[in-house]
């Protein structure tokens, strides 16, 4: 190839000079960039701004009130209940999802038969409409004709109006939440188990750690530690964003016994039209999510650098 030819090729490869490349870049990313600004970046700014006002949805006037929304949030028993309920719900959902997900993953992986089948049926709730399935859960938990009470009565366990009892509503929502997230944790753990090198188990065999518990303690669980942290955060994020089951099943009741963050946000913003106040809740929610996501990014990065 002559130098003249190669120069032409070079130009074509680099789509001419730098400015043309820049232009092509902006043309390709333009629509997405505008939409990200309009649909994500500006609205985020708007939420932060509205949270500092006393605006009611539809009102013509508003005034800047600084951090007053946040101070009244702290004093608001309904919001404190929402925070408390969200935390309590998460504290029930997250450990049970992790423990069940890990146990089931170990159990599925311990044999060779029907692996795909068991994975599929446990994963099913994760991808179905939680709104539709919440209606089914309402039927299951129906005080008189519900399957749960029928079975409990048949085996002599106490029955209850689960969704209407102040002490039963959160645990029962946590059961539904666990039921939904379990499949995700299971699948993530299964992927983690697959990634453990067989050599480590062989080395354990030769070193004398060949019992089930020894292998678990020496190889399986330590190897799963990064995955577990990851699952922990993903499931926690999902638990904090619980909304559908509350909207369909309890509407936050009885009293405020099952109000959680997102439902409080929805209720204040769109039912009570206390928009500024709702925006303040949105900001609190955002802060929590960002904290968890930052932690998640750290986990992912540390996983990438220490394989």
């Amino acid at each position: 190839m002559t130098s003249e030819q190669s120069a032409t090729v070079d130009r074509q490869l680099r789509i001419d000079t730098g400015s043309a490349e820049t232009l092509a870049g902006y043309a390709l990313i333009g629509p997405a960039l505008v939409l990200i600004l309009v649909l994500f970046i500006l609205p985020t700014g708007a939420v932060l701004a509205i949270a500092a006002t006393d605006w009611h949805l539809g009102a013509k006037t508003l005034s800047f009130i600084g951090a007053a929304n946040f101070t009244s949030l702290l004093a608001d028993p309904a919001f404190r209940a929402a925070l408390f309920n969200t935390a309590a719900y998460s504290l029930m959902v997250v450990p049970s999802t992790l423990v069940l997900g890990l146990s089931l993953a170990l159990l599925i992986e311990s044999g060779k038969t029907l692996r795909a089948f068991y994975r599929a049926i446990h994963f099913l709730p994760f991808m179905t409409s939680l709104a539709a399935m919440a209606i089914v859960w309402e039927m299951l938990l129906h005080p008189t004709i519900g399957l749960v009470n029928q079975v409990f009565a048949a085996v002599g366990l106490p029955t209850a109006n689960w969704l209407r009892g102040e002490s039963t509503v959160l645990p029962i929502l946590a059961v539904i939440g666990t039921w939904q997230s379990l499949g995700l944790a299971l699948v993530l753990f299964l992927a983690g188990l697959k990634a453990i090198p067989q050599d480590l188990y062989d080395a354990a065999d030769i070193d004398g750690a060949d019992g089930v518990l020894d292998r678990l303690r020496l190889v399986t669980l330590p190897s799963l530690a990064p995955v577990s942290l990851f699952v922990l955060i993903v499931v926690t994020l999902r638990a904090f964003a619980a909304f559908d089951i509350i909207q369909v099943l309890t509407r936050g009741g009885p009293g405020d016994a099952s109000v959680m963050l997102l439902y409080a946000l929805y209720r204040e913003s769109f039912e009570y039209f206390r928009t500024g106040y709702g925006a303040a809740i949105a900001v609190v929610f955002l802060v929590i999510v960002i904290a968890l996501a930052t932690l998640q990014a750290r986990v992912v990065n540390s996983r990438a650098s220490h394989p």
Binding site: D202, D205, I206
Partner: peptide, 17 residues
């Protein structure tokens, strides 16, 4: 394996990380 009085060095070393 543990009763055979053999030790093994693996290609991947298989050290417990």
């Amino acid at each position: 394996p543990k009763r055979r009085d053999v030790a093994m060095v693996f290609q991947s070393y298989a050290l417990y990380p």
